[in-house]
Amino acid sequence: MSASKPVAFIIGYGPNVGAAIARKFKSEGFNVAISGRKVDENAAKEDGYLGISADCADIASVRNAFDRLEGELGPAAAVIYNAFSANNTTDEDPLANPYETFLNNVIVTGVNFYEVARRAKAGFEKLSADTPRALIGTGNLQPWVTFPFALGMSVGKRAMANIVEASAAAYGSRGHRFYYAHEVKGETGGPQVPPTGQAHAEVFYRIWKQKEQGPWEVCFTETGALYDRAAGKVVS
């Protein structure tokens, strides 16, 4: 892998959204690293990626993943956090999960995103001034819409959104950009299940190319069009 290329780090790699994002950034000339609990590092190498096994529930594992990334490829210009944990219950019994299960959902989805944001920012500060840099958290509607059956993930996504909002306000003017990006159905503005991998890939790459911090929330549809959540309509 060329040391002169920008680096993209996809955390929480999976066969849909994560794979589409990795392919997109690789096609745009990035060195790409992918990370997850079930990442096959040999298969990743065959695909042209650096595979890093990491468990986002374990903060030491998250830190080690960044250490390995920077040791082998250098600091990332694009960091994508696609990890989450959900153990759904029902709307009638949102407290059915044990405390430990709820806590794991919150930690993976939101709390450990804080350390990812810290490490991403530290990496951004090592890049040349003309290199765009962004941390993008894969979101959903949960910061604004209550889904009682997914309480642990919902609390985690609200934490992620709060971290992104604060970071964008503090560091965006310095060129270190932070976004919470999420997909909705274009016709209804409701959840898009399953998510559309290619739409994520196209939108996330567009976000990365921007050099100025835009609105920290980026809402888009299955076609990649931007969606105004407050107005309830597609805007571009």
Rank of each mutant, 00 (worst) to 15 (best):
E72L: 14
E92S: 15
A166T: 11
I52Y: 05
E125M: 13
N140T: 04
D93N: 15
P98V: 09
W216Y: 14
E115A: 14
A20M: 02
G12W: 02
A225V: 03
F147M: 07
G71S: 14
V17K: 00
R133E: 06
E222N: 07
G139W: 09
P191E: 00
A57V: 00
V111D: 15
F102V: 10
M1L: 12
I59C: 03
K38E: 08
G51C: 00
A168T: 02
A8M: 07
V164N: 07
D47Y: 06
Q198H: 03
V203G: 02
A86F: 09
P194F: 09
N31Q: 10
A60M: 06
A201T: 05
G186P: 00
N112A: 14
F147A: 10
I80G: 00
T90Y: 13
A44S: 05
A54H: 02
I80C: 07
S61F: 07
F204M: 11
R118C: 15
Q142I: 06
V7F: 06
A8G: 10
K26N: 01
E100W: 13
R119Y: 13
V62M: 04
E212S: 14
W216V: 10
I163G: 11
K45E: 11
W216K: 09
F30I: 00
Y49T: 01
L135D: 06
